[in-house]
Design a binder for these strands. Sequence first.
DNA 1: GTGTAAACTTGACGCGATGTAAACTTACGC
DNA 2: GCGTAAGTTTACATCGCGTCAAGTTTACAC
Lengths: 198, 198
Amino acid sequence: MSSKPTETKEKILDAALRLLIENGGKDVRMSDIAKAAGLSRQAIYLNFESRTELMVATVQYGDELNDAASQVKPWSDAEGVEKLDAWIYFWGHYLPQVFGVAKALLVAKETDEAALAAWDDRMEDVRKSCRKTIQSLANQGLLAKPWKVKTATDSLWTLLSVASYEQLTDKCGWSTRQYVQQMQCLARRSFVSNEATP
Amino acid sequence: MSSKPTETKEKILDAALRLLIENGGKDVRMSDIAKAAGLSRQAIYLNFESRTELMVATVQYGDELNDAASQVKPWSDAEGVEKLDAWIYFWGHYLPQVFGVAKALLVAKETDEAALAAWDDRMEDVRKSCRKTIQSLANQGLLAKPWKVKTATDSLWTLLSVASYEQLTDKCGWSTRQYVQQMQCLARRSFVSNEATP
DNA sequence: GTGTAAACTTGACGCGATGTAAACTTACGC
DNA sequence: GCGTAAGTTTACATCGCGTCAAGTTTACAC
């Protein structure tokens, strides 16, 4: 759905995306978006049902713009430890691109049912990828001793959460490069059985 | 400061604490707290400057009630891997007690400068404890190869964040027992050098 | 050109929540 | 009784989302 947004819709999405990224997802009001799009506040409501719907559409729009699907290719090809590394590599480079928008949704979900549903839906996708990755490890007999696929998946998923990313980059000052390297290290040490990591 | 809250203040704090815990930090309005305390909404503003100040005071109040200081004792005595285990054990049992209130602050910090400051302040304390723990590992030469004290501290701190706890217990259905065990496992595998963990 | 329908604007309003202000009520000490 | 402190009541300001109704622009059909 929403394969080709109209020109006005696109103006709104562009403005929303820009503002969300600029402001890290905070302090972006409907009126701000309207002004940035050169439209009246009401024009937005003619094109989107609610703030939440706009947020959700903006996430999608951002994803389409930077073509997330193509970036994930190397990950889906790999298996085992390489898959783990590739997954974290992809995720670590993908997150900064969508962080502003994700953050907006992350905040909205605390007070808005629809935002919560949209967020959960997206996060379940991420969880699936984590599961696939862990499963690949397990298939090669490389999943470290005490872990089950379920618990390892949950842990990896949580490790890679948006909130954790925010804390590490924001509060701890990590760069993308550092984030990827350290998370790869952490995940390998945690989930891959010893004999496989020299 | 605020060593002995007046009777009214205490009624308010009791009500706030109860509601925050009951509702997981969401949907607790000033009017709800007032009603629960058997007071008018304005009576709260006579005792607390703002919602944020009340939230912060409630966190402190909750901490005093369940005497966090005494629970942390076994942790401060231990060293090395035991310290790591003890710290996670303490944290895993402490978090559920304060989760509702912490969550309230976690939400408030997104829109409220004062809440943000209060939250950051508290989180820095947790970070210090993580640092002490990692430092103890390092002192015994047990900090695993690629880690520095700083990066390991940041990682452990993030691993133990409230948001991560929420995801694991809420979305993944982990119990406190599971949380403690898996986090201990994860942390040991990640941060403790191999020869020390049979 | 004229008519008409869709898209957009303008300005007003309702709602829920925080926070403020002013006037009234109690209770207590002296 | 008088004054003060703590609380109550009622009303109002503010902010942001969402809605509504009436007016205006644009574009296209005939």
